[in-house]
């Protein structure tokens, strides 16, 4: 039973960042803007917020510091994503080009600045954020072990983001308008919706989420930040499509990926899998192969927003 709990807890560490970032990508794509820059924005968010943790060590610690870092990561991601929004909305630039530029810029910038500030590119931090057991809730049998032990506050932030995203997207005026802009911006415009504003909102939300996602990815899995998030931004894109641009399906998709990643990382500690003697590389490949296979079956009737990737031009018919 203990193995099940520890695998589940591990899985959460991989699932939550994917979930948050893919939800961010969802807001952007639902507004009609492809955001391939998620990887770069994650790096930027993680870089600025980990730097903050590094600099305030000794003054701050624990949950206060982490929550402040989350806010800073969101702001950093949002500001960085402004470049993507400006290029793809105002300049009507090719969205993959500006996204690629951001992906290239972020790690180079993080290394360059880190070297100037402290000589080496790795930014160290002390992890004072792990919650051994949530008071009261951690004592509930099974559920307590699964959800409230050996965890981080960021896990709950991720779940909160999921709930809020679902409500905002489907139960509010804003969500309806955002979705309209991704499906048929001309129609949205004709009923008085400011398409440019909605697309800015979509990209900025994705920037904030991707920034948070970067921080959330680094905290439980490392003790330093080395200007990389290991391709999680690209994985989040896959999760987004795997989840068919739908919040709850995105949750399942990211959980699936998280589980596979966990198995690849820790299968030798799981007796059943260790005894099979399958090389670790097979487990590492499984999530990607499965995604491909699933896409084969689901892509025929893809739910992709219709107008995504096409710069909106008021004058065009």
């Amino acid at each position: 039973m203990n193995i099940v709990f520890s695998v589940f807890q591990q899985t959460m560490f991989f699932t939550i960042p994917l979930l948050i970032v893919a939800l961010g990508g969802m807001f952007s794509e639902r507004s009609g803007i492809i955001n391939i820059a998620l990887e770069g924005i994650m790096i930027m968010g993680a870089f600025v917020s980990i730097l903050f943790i590094n600099r305030t060590q000794g003054v701050l610690s624990g949950q206060t510091q982490l929550i402040l870092a989350v806010v800073i990561a969101a702001i950093a991601g949002m500001l960085f994503s402004l470049f993507h929004a400006f290029a793809s909305i105002n300049m009507k630039a090719d969205q993959t080009i500006s996204g690629t530029a951001l992906n290239l810029f972020a790690p180079a910038f993080a290394i360059f600045v880190a070297r100037i500030l402290q000589g080496v590119q790795q930014i160290q931090f002390t992890n004072t954020f792990r919650i051994e057991s949530v008071p009261v809730l951690g004592n509930i049998p099974i559920i307590g072990d699964l959800f409230f032990k050996n965890t981080y506050i960021t896990t709950y932030i991720g779940i909160l983001i999921l709930i809020l995203s679902t409500i905002v997207l489907y139960k509010t005026k804003f969500g309806l308008r955002l979705r309209a802009c991704g499906e048929h911006p001309q129609a949205a415009d004709s009923v008085g919706i400011n398409v440019y504003k909605m697309q800015y909102a979509g990209v900025l939300i994705s920037g904030a989420f991707a920034g948070i996602g970067g921080l959330v990815f680094v905290i439980p899995t490392s003790t330093n930040f080395n200007a990389t998030v290991a391709g999680y931004g690209f994985l989040a894109l896959a999760v987004l499509i795997f989840g068919q641009w739908h919040p709850v399906r995105i949750l399942f998709a990211s959980f699936f990926f998280g589980l596979m990643k966990t198995i690849a990382a820790s299968y030798s500690g799981i007796p059943v899998l260790a005894s099979l003697g399958v090389p670790s590389y097979i487990y590492k490949m499984v999530p990607y192969v499965t995604t491909l296979v699933v896409l084969v079956f689901t892509s025929k009737n893809s739910q992709a927003p219709r107008a995504e990737g096409i710069p909106y031009d008021k004058g065009a018919r």
Partner: peptide, 18 residues
């Protein structure tokens, strides 16, 4: 199968590397 080329390529990158 109408699979998105970008995503399929990203998957093939990781599969190829591993």
């Amino acid at each position: 199968f109408n699979v998105n080329v970008v995503i399929a390529c990203i998957m093939m990158n990781y599969i190829g590397m591993y």
